[in-house]
């Protein structure tokens, strides 16, 4: 099997990971493992062959090839914004960021995870990583989490001018009515830049849909 065939055969694997770990987290996992086992040519092949289908992978592979590496998740700003919140509804899934957030929030803060995703997900498995801490929240009942001390937090994937890239799940619950029902709608950028290829799996929204946007210190233009 050639390197190209080997990389191309990983499509299902990436999809599996992206569903339950998140696009950015899985992209870093794949880039790091492929770099370890196949070196730079492997990462180039990953970017060129799978990156067209998974734009976050394209972005992460490109960043890796230009010397960038995965950075530890900095949860301090988000935790500060969520101080005093009783309920936090997470929209989207990025495992490393979720893990850090769960550790940072006080135990009395309820954390819900919206169980809506375009990719297949074993939600029991996802939630088993946070037993008794993260609750599943169906799209049909997410408004039961609303309140003056409630917040929605969604992961974002770069910003271009005043528009941010988010998962379609956020579009399903955002709107003028929802805006008034939650104290904050926070965006948390997990990528630090905008994918160079067409942002499949993501949608573009005005940044004004969010009340706050937390971005890494070094954002790519």
């Amino acid at each position: 099997m050639t390197l190209g065939e080997e990389i191309a055969s990983l499509r299902d694997a990436f999809e599996q990971g992206a569903g339950e770990l998140g696009f950015a987290d899985t992209a870093w996992l794949f880039v790091e493992r492929v770099a370890e086992l196949r070196g730079e040519p492997g990462v180039v092949a990953l970017r060129d062959l799978l990156g067209q289908t998974f734009p976050t992978l394209h972005f992460v592979a490109s960043r890796y090839l230009s010397g960038g590496r995965r950075e530890p998740v900095d949860v301090s700003e988000v935790a500060e914004l969520l101080r005093g919140t009783r309920r936090v509804l997470i929209v989207g899934l990025e495992a490393a960021h979720l893990d850090a957030l769960v550790l940072a929030l006080p135990r009395e803060t309820r954390i819900g995870l919206l169980t809506y995703r375009l990719l297949p997900v074993d939600w029991d498995r996802v939630l088993s990583n946070h037993p008794g801490r993260v609750e599943a929240v169906d799209l049909t009942v997410f408004q039961t989490w609303a309140g003056a001390r409630s917040a929605i937090l969604t992961f974002t994937y770069g910003r271009r001018a005043e528009r941010v890239y988010v998962l379609p799940a956020f579009a399903r619950i955002s709107g003028a009515d929802v805006r008034t029902q939650f104290r904050d709608l926070i965006g948390w950028d997990v990528l630090g830049g905008v994918p160079a290829v067409y942002p499949r799996w993501l949608i573009e929204l005005p940044a004004s849909e969010l009340t706050r946007l937390v971005e890494p210190a070094h954002m790519e233009p």
Partner: peptide, 21 residues
């Protein structure tokens, strides 16, 4: 022969999917 990518990645992925279990 070079270590195949599939099995190696799959084990990394499984470890991550059950990371806190």
């Amino acid at each position: 022969a070079a270590k195949p990518l599939g099995p190696s990645l799959s084990l990394s992925l499984v470890r991550e999917l059950y990371r806190n279990v």
